[in-house]
């Protein structure tokens, strides 16, 4: 029981990481009906930026927000340069473009930083604390807290601020929003920036666990897909719940299902994606999907 609970807690910690990236996917899906295949690579690049800053002697707690701000700006730049010209293109064109973007960013990271895995600092101690009889590492608790903070911040931004309101309006009703003076195209840019920053959190949180290298996010993006699909791809709340559920599921599967072990956890992610898409394509919190033709 003790070990089970520990598995659940560390599942929640990785789940928080998946949730951030899944939330980033959901933000862009809501803004333009698109799954951004480059989300993971954008996060990876932001993590490299944070790494470079820390490496130059910047304190972790300054490098972290600086990297997020840079990721935000980078997201806007990508939207302006690559996405905006093809905004109205068919969805498959957009998917292929984001896939091209993923490939490009992956190569760029390799070009600039190389492919040697690097250890990334964690601000949290690796020691464990006794929480109600369960030993939980400070690292897991820190990751859970950070993820929770980010998700809360995004929630407040979207639900409680005027910018958030106009972003939501622009995403769902671009024509009507324009008539109310909302600068829809810039709102999409902000959406990409926000998604990029939120995704970057997942990269920076996961890097101490996985070691930092250009392909670091390749498995995380699959879990984030699984989380977003499970939660319902248009639901921010669903992304969070889905992320936590996927994190706990793969952790428990890895620990207790002998045939899964460590190396087939990714296959569990794939299985979740396929099962949800076939059994309940709208996910847990999604409404009936509107097909964008």
């Amino acid at each position: 029981m003790q070990e089970f609970l520990q598995q659940v807690v560390s599942g929640l910690a990785v789940g928080g990481i998946f949730a951030s990236l899944a939330l980033a996917l959901v933000l862009i899906y809501n803004a333009m009906g698109l799954v951004n295949f480059a989300q993971g690579e954008m996060a990876m690049l932001a993590t490299f930026v944070a790494y470079a800053l820390v490496n130059r002697g910047m304190s972790y707690w300054i490098a972290f927000p600086v990297a997020l701000v840079l990721a935000f700006g980078g997201g806007i730049v990508i939207q302006r340069i690559v996405i905006r010209p093809v905004e109205r293109a068919p969805i498959l064109t957009l998917v292929i473009i984001t896939l091209g973007l993923a490939t490009l960013l992956n190569g760029l990271a390799g070009f600039v930083f190389g492919y040697v895995p690097r250890s990334f600092p964690s601000p949290f101690s690796a020691q464990s604390a006794d929480v109600l009889g369960v030993f939980v590492s400070y690292r897991d608790l820190g990751v859970i807290a950070m993820s929770g903070l980010v998700l809360l911040a995004v929630y407040l931004l979207l639900q409680r601020t005027t910018v958030g309101l106009t972003m939501r309006a622009a995403a769902h009703h671009p024509e009507a929003s324009r008539l109310l003076g909302v600068q829809v195209s810039w709102m999409l840019g902000l959406g990409w920036g926000l998604a990029s920053a939120v995704g970057a959190v997942s990269g920076i949180m996961v890097a101490p666990i996985l070691l930092l290298e250009p392909n670091m996010m390749q498995s995380i993006i699959i879990y984030a897909f699984a989380a977003a699909v499970l939660g319902g791809i248009e639901s921010p709340l669903g992304a969070v719940v889905g992320g936590l559920a996927v994190g706990v599921t793969i952790n428990l599967a890895g620990a207790y299902l002998p045939f899964v072990g460590g190396d087939l956890q990714l296959a569990v992610g794939l299985a979740i994606i396929i099962a949800v898409l076939i059994i309940r394509p709208n996910g847990l919190f999604g409404r009936a999907a509107v097909r964008r033709v």
Binding site: A169, H172, H173, A176, S177, L180, G181
Partner: peptide, 19 residues
């Protein structure tokens, strides 16, 4: 009418005055 049906009545009104 251009109502944002995803939003609440209040949020729709706020969009009117947001500038």
């Amino acid at each position: 009418r251009g109502i944002c049906t995803e939003l609440t009545v209040d949020e729709n009104l706020k969009l009117g005055s947001h500038l």
